[in-house]
Amino acid sequence: MNKRSAVVLLVTAMALLSGCDPSAQDPNVTLSENQQDPIEALEVTSNVDRSEFSYKETFYVPIYSDIYTDKDNRKVLLAATLSVRNTTLEKSLYINKIDYYDTDGALVKSYIDKPIELPAMATLNYIVEKEENKGGAGANFIIEVEGADDTVKPVIEAVMIGNFSNKGFAFSTEGTPVIH
């Protein structure tokens, strides 16, 4: 094999392997400003004394991975955007858990390994692609947040969107506090 063929083979292999990188196809990465996973970008890196925090709450957020349309087209897959918004002007909100469950209540995925910090007035949007159909019609997120005091209450919503033939679907749901 000559030098030119080896270079062409190497460049082709690199191109093919970069196409296998899951983060290269993740809309959360490709649609972000810095081409970085938004959750990883918010991971807590400094030491914050959270032992004094007086606000802690868990939210249930319904997500519809699919919906029934009619007897001929039983199921339409939907994309969902989870939105966690810090509504305070000066204080950070800390997110300790973002877990995704399916219709049967089985854990599909834990999105964070360590706490993330959402600065004042910031929003975390996270996309669940419509091709990710493990959740089903009764999918949901459990999100655990905490902050300095109860003025740091978030707004948590989900927006689902999808289409089939000439039908388009878009609707939203709100996070509900979980009663322990």
Rank of each mutant, 00 (worst) to 15 (best):
Y126Q: 08
E40F: 10
S5I: 12
A158N: 01
R4M: 11
V108K: 11
I98A: 05
S5Y: 08
I143H: 03
Y60W: 06
R85V: 04
T103R: 01
I112Q: 04
G105C: 10
E57P: 09
L17A: 15
A158S: 00
D26A: 00
R50Y: 13
T173F: 00
T151G: 07
L9D: 08
K97V: 12
E157D: 09
S172R: 05
L89E: 11
P177S: 06
V44K: 10
D72G: 10
Y64R: 14
D149N: 15
K75Q: 15
L124F: 06
S46W: 05
D113Q: 14
F59C: 00
Y60S: 01
A15V: 11
I179F: 07
A6K: 12
F164W: 08
I63T: 09
A139E: 01
E33G: 12
K75M: 13
Y68R: 07
T81Y: 09
A80F: 00
Y126W: 14
M121F: 04
V48G: 02
I142D: 02
S54E: 10
E57Y: 05
I95P: 08
N133P: 00
V84I: 15
R4W: 01
I63S: 02
I98L: 06
K109M: 09
H180K: 15
L82H: 09
A24G: 03
K109Q: 15
E40G: 03
